[in-house]
Simulated assay, not measured.
Amino acid sequence: MANSRNPISENGNRLRWDDARVFLAIARSGSLSGAAAALGLGLATVSRQIERLEAALGLTLFSRHQTGYRLTDDGEALLERAEALEQAAEAFAEGSAAQAGIAGRVRLATAETLANHVIIPALPMLSTRYRDLTLEVVTDVQSVNLHRRDADLAVRLVKPQRGNVTIRRLGRIGFGLYASRSHAAERRDDVRFEHDRFITWCESHSHLPAAQWIERVLRGRAPALMTTTLSAQLSAVVAGVGVAVLPHFLGRQNGLACLRADIGLDQEIWLALHSDLARSRRVRAVAEFLAELIHGSRNLLETPPTT
């Protein structure tokens, strides 16, 4: 009787469950080196395991190119089944650790402003609930792809339009035009802002709604300062360099003067998580914590200062 712990393929070779994990890592990264880095394995180990899997299946799963590895038709056909295996393995691991409660690492991608001023200050509450949970916060959201599993879940100001993700609206974040109190007291009463010095985004970020709004207001005039981060713009406003479009909660927290509260730039806050992780206990725990946090901060995030 054959040993049932490792199934045998049609050509008689024994399959190893761990090889499916390597297959998925190569498919997602497009290279052996990317898969090795993601799994914490050596390059030779990854190469040996994928060759072993192809031999066991009697199939060529990837076509090798100078630019990387691409799935063959046979590889594409097995991708969904491999992802189902991965999900089952995660569920098994979580089930075995159920008595220990929520544990493990969850990778969250979000905007730096939300991370620094909303999420991270509230993390002691999450740590109190789940002492064995580790949260990894990634703020370089331009390079994060949930479908590739660069992160487990994300809190974003732009609604994801595609990919194998589950989406949930959490709330809204309000934006206005702000200046320091001293700068506001000295500026002219100019409803068209023709005499104001603006702080805006560098050209690499010109697609952002705030950058486009300021460009329309300037009508060809040069700004006073251009930056690549909102935190730099906040520092410049506090220093009196000029005026900038900022979230209302940052204006309130820093005692800034709101020159115009409604500029039509309010944005929805979206929670997105990879659909394969929708049943992960630790990912769900973080998702629910974030939903509670954003909902409880609605007044702070949405409304401008009263004075």
Rank of each mutant, 00 (worst) to 15 (best):
A2I: 15
E10C: 06
N13Y: 12
R14P: 05
L24N: 02
A25P: 05
I26T: 00
G30Y: 10
A36C: 06
G42P: 02
S47K: 12
R48A: 04
E54L: 00
A56Q: 04
G58D: 06
T60G: 11
L61A: 04
S63N: 08
Q66F: 14
L71I: 10
A77N: 13
A77L: 09
A84P: 04
E94V: 06
A97K: 01
I102T: 05
G104H: 09
R105C: 07
H117K: 08
I119Q: 05
P124K: 03
Y130N: 01
T139Y: 06
V141E: 12
A151N: 11
L153A: 02
L157G: 11
L157K: 03
Q161T: 15
R162V: 01
I173S: 01
G174A: 05
A179R: 07
D189T: 13
R192K: 10
W201H: 04
S206M: 12
A210V: 02
A211K: 15
Q212I: 01
W213H: 10
L218W: 05
A222I: 09
S231Y: 08
A236S: 09
G240D: 14
V243I: 15
A244Y: 11
F249K: 07
R260A: 08
Q267V: 01
H274C: 03
R282A: 11
V283E: 00
A285S: 11
F289P: 09
L300N: 04
L301I: 10
T303P: 02
